[in-house]
Nucleic acid binder design. Structure first.
Lengths: 215, 215
DNA sequence: CGGAAGATTGAGCGTAGTCAAACCGAGTGG
DNA sequence: CCACTCGGTTTGACTACGCTCAATCTTCCG
């Protein structure tokens, strides 16, 4: 029912269209999941950090809808879906975890629709950074200082803006003394103030990790 | 376990923050679900037609994340969640339907992220119209001719553009002899051609309705 | 009939996109 | 150890798509 996976940066965990057999929990490293249009335009749908769950989008009709790619050396724990289903029929707690997880996936993507449909570029980037900050804190790391694991293009795609715009907006934040940016390292100079000025963008909290451990 | 609800245009089925108790299937009429930012900007997250299911976003943590509003006189069938859970533990088919439904909700919103993040205004509107066309067909109505139940503002919000842009793009389609627009009535003049020219935007298919009937 | 909400259209503007060049850092191989 | 390459990042100049604001028109109800 459980198995380990090891990926190098750039390798895929699964691809759009593959048969959905397992969901994964991230043990270390990080992933992005993305969709692609016929003409090559792609949209990053999410970034996945340790403790989080990937692959639920395959549940709709047994085929993955996105492609999941490692951003760095990454280890996951694959959980086979069919026995998980059976287990959730016997154990109410498993059923509940599974439903909460899926519910969170729904509300996370809905919240992201709000971001993509209604926010300006600086608001999007602020929401993104605050989200990463919170997720870092949730895993026991500093919320005011962390490294981005993804490229500017990935960030831009995720936020519906261009990589160049990501650069310019970061420069803007820097100029306003809101944060320090050194390549992929981010440090907030006054996180509460930053959060306050973009509080409208601060609205969503991460899901609790799947109960139970990797075998 | 089941109960009927009747709404007039503009009335809400549930509001963000309310306790999640039930999911609804739409029996007649139509609804929109939306999220709102602190400063009043809103994002329409979806439109819901007869046969479709509303309210799954409450599953994340027991509170609805969106507000669901009737676009016209509407009837729904409410299904109480707790007994539904119990039922899904006994009947594999119910469990399966529920999971597929949630999976579809995930992939629908992911697909919409792609639209909001990567497509131009005409592409978005084309995707929207083609989606409505397909859903009309799925319910046994003409895919080439139908009435919009929502305002231009709602469409714009849903697509991440302004109502004025919706008008202008519709006028553009009209000028290209792709379709006729009379207020809220849409008629495709050559649906296959239209679908072909915007095939990149055509990528998602609707969920099967929830098995079983309203008591 | 009158009022309100929605739809349409136009003019002008601004945010973010495009294109292109320079820069940087990490690997690789001579 | 340095030169070279290659992806990724940064910056600038210019453009354009879609937004804003405002006026007008239409439709729908009370």
């Amino acid at each position: 029912m459980f198995s380990r996976h090891r990926l190098l940066a750039g390798e895929t965990l699964y691809r759009k269209g593959e048969a959905f057999q397992v969901v994964h929990t991230v043990r270390s490293g990080s992933l992005k999941s993305s969709m692609t249009l016929a003409d090559g335009r792609t949209q990053v749908c999410g970034f996945h950090l340790p403790g989080e769950v990937v692959g639920l989008d395959g549940m709709a009709d047994g085929l993955y809808q996105t492609t999941s790619t490692a951003l760095e050396d990454t280890q996951t724990c694959a959980v086979v879906y069919v026995p998980l289903l059976a287990l959730s029929q016997r154990l109410r707690s498993v059923q509940q975890s599974l439903h909460r997880l899926m519910g969170h996936e729904v509300s996370r993507t809905q919240w992201h629709m709000l971001l993509l449909g209604s926010m300006t570029a600086p608001e999007r980037l602020a929401a993104f950074l605050l989200d990463l900050s919170r997720r870092a804190a949730a895993r026991g790391y500093s919320p005011i200082e962390f490294n981005l694991r993804m490229t500017r293009s990935d960030i831009g795609s995720y936020l519906g803006i261009r990589a160049e715009t990501v650069c310019r907006v970061l420069r803007g934040f820097k100029a306003m003394n809101l944060l320090e940016v050194d390549a992929r390292h981010i440090r907030f100079l006054d996180l509460p103030a930053f959060a306050r000025s973009y509080s409208a963008t601060l609205n969503w909290r991460p899901a609790a990790p799947l109960a139970g451990r990797c075998a």
